[in-house]
Write a protein that binds this DNA or RNA. Structure first.
Length: 298
DNA sequence: AAGTGAAGCAACCGCGGCGTT
DNA sequence: CAACGCCGCGGTTGCTTCACT
């Protein structure tokens, strides 16, 4: 008879070994089934069987009401999860694998105009889902731009912004103002919000893809000068706001009127309707023109 | 060989817009 | 016109893989 003192540690080791083994080979889902929500809907990774069911159902009945699709298809998933799985993975023509340099260039170019409007950007890239593009941006392109001294939100060299931000931090006597980073998070997030605000006005559900293409092909914003003027004005306005004491997240303070004014200045509001966007002209945004994003960096 | 961090990817969550009642 | 519910979008999280030490 083995004393309990000796059995217990052995048992613990055995159980953890089994657990690790199951986890490593994804057998845990079988050994310990994931229950999911209290209503019985399953969550987590999709199995091949579930994929087959979803594809088979959509092949026959097409995409209808996502709410009622799961029970009809014999799936214990919520409609949202089915939709996501279909759009990002199972949909015919969906392109997997690495992004080509051309695709990356296209993403950067569109992002410089549209901001984080991933769905709109995805419409310009057949086969790529918005989730795919978003993931690639967040995990790769954004960091690459940052490494090369380009603010991924404004698509402008960060050096100027850094100087301005540092002066802001110097002016700010509050201990809450971080001086560790050369870039103010509030400015970055503010810029992002501004760009998204602008993009919201010209893209997605409010306006069609054709209209966005028109914007992108508009000579008034494709000219480097026009763009620089716009950002110069942005920086001037930003500087003015920094001078004021009571505004830390300046761009949040922009109302619709001010945003519209800025958009008019950079020529976004008064666009013409002709032409098709050409990714090869992405140098127009100054990113490549600056020489900071050379071929070897891509 | 083991540990650790970065990168990549899949999926979930919460919110806002829009259509319907 | 308000309330409600669904859908789509963007942000975020968590897991796996890979590279490096």
């Amino acid at each position: 008879m083995v004393p309990i003192k000796q059995v217990f540690p052995m048992g613990v080791i055995f159980i953890s070994a089994v657990y690790s083994f199951c986890l490593r080979f994804k057998w845990l889902a079988i050994v310990v089934p994931y229950v999911g929500d209290s209503d019985g809907t399953k969550r987590g990774e999709w199995t091949e069987e579930e994929d087959r069911k979803l594809v088979a159902y959509i092949d026959v009945y097409g995409i209808g009401d996502w709410r009622f699709l799961p029970p009809k298809a014999g799936l214990q998933r919520c409609g949202k999860s089915c939709r996501l799985r279909w759009l990002n993975y199972l949909r015919p023509g969906v392109k997997k694998g690495k992004f080509t340099p051309q695709e990356e260039e296209t993403i950067i170019s569109f992002h410089s105009i549209l901001g984080n409007r991933w769905a709109t950007i995805a419409q310009q890239m057949p086969g790529r889902s918005d989730n795919d593009i978003k993931n690639h941006w967040n995990s790769c392109l954004k960091k690459r731009l940052e490494r090369n001294g380009i603010d991924p939100m404004t698509h402008q060299p960060m050096i100027n912004l850094a100087v301005k931000t540092q002066s802001f931090n110097t002016d700010c006597g509050s201990s809450s103002c971080s001086t560790a980073s050369p870039f103010s998070s509030s400015f970055s997030s503010g810029s992002a919000r501004l760009l998204n605000k602008i993009a919201t006005g010209i893209s997605s559900r409010q306006h069609g893809v054709d209209r966005i293409k028109n914007i992108l092909s508009d000579p008034s914003i494709t000219s480097i000068n026009g763009q620089e003027e716009g950002f110069e004005q942005l920086k001037i306005d930003h500087g003015k706001m920094l001078a004021s004491d009571d505004q830390t997240d300046d761009f949040l303070m922009w109302d619709e009127e001010k945003t519209r004014h800025f958009m008019e200045e950079i020529g976004v509001m008064d666009f013409q309707t002709n032409g098709v966007y050409n990714p090869s002209s992405s140098a127009q945004y100054g990113v490549y023109e600056s020489g900071l994003l050379d071929d070897h960096l891509i």
